[in-house]
Design a protein around this nucleic acid. Structure first.
Lengths: 125, 125
DNA sequence: CCGAATCCGAGATGATACTG
DNA sequence: CAGTATCATCTCGGATTCGG
């Protein structure tokens, strides 16, 4: 299914390679919050997103977790952090072009969540 | 982007609804192992997959975690667990039709992991 | 041999208060 | 406003043990 390009030649990934690739992804994107944060920012590339706005938009996240997750996303070049010269100082976050490459992942998760809710609903009667 | 069907009418999900849907997905599929297990089983629907085989196939998982994760996946109807009348008794696992609906999620993660590895490699020089 | 149950430390997560 | 500090709690996951 998945393709790997090696020395300019495209070939199919083996099952084991697929699992390693998933492990790589989950190391960077896994956990409770990172994909939510990326999705939130990706849906709002036209706006300035400050720390407080993010925290209000992502239900349930604490300031500590948000701060930690943003730091890790920045290290992995998925988001940018811009300190703005206002009073009081504000900080704006945005997805990078590379961060936008995560969109398909979040999209399949959103779609599956919708399907799953339907399924639960109908099994409830 | 994502669509919701409500009372037979299709409409776009709001950003907030999208995040709720992702939260639903991550509640069921999140964590370090569940998506790996589903991918492994989905790639091998033609075989009997026993507990030990799963544990050997998924690098790094302990028996305890595997047992726990399988139980949760079974509760959510994503996999089946079949006790086989052998000596000694063995247990075979398989994805359900519903479990196969998770395939697009694992596929995007596999693909992103491959992209990410390329990116790391090139940034290393 | 398959898997469950128990114990335990380490790390993840959370609630609240606090600083520049 | 943007985070940090502190303390409490929950979960992860390894080692070991137990039963079928």
């Amino acid at each position: 299914m998945a393709k790997i390009i090696e020395n300019g030649i495209e070939r199919e990934a083996s099952c084991t390679e697929e699992l390693y690739a998933m492990r790589d992804s989950l190391d960077v994107l896994g956990g409770k919050w990172k994909l939510m944060i990326i999705r939130y920012l990706t849906n709002r590339t036209d706006q300035q997103i400050h720390f407080k706005k993010l925290q209000r938009g992502i239900t349930g996240i604490s300031a500590k977790m948000l701060s930690k997750e943003l730091k890790e996303l920045e290290i992995n070049l998925l988001i940018t952090r811009t300190i703005q010269d206002t009073k009081p100082i504000t900080v704006a976050y945005a997805v990078t072009e590379y961060g936008k490459s995560v969109f398909p992942v979040t999209e399949t998760l959103v779609n599956w969540g919708i399907i799953h809710r339907e399924k639960i609903k109908e099994s409830m009667g």
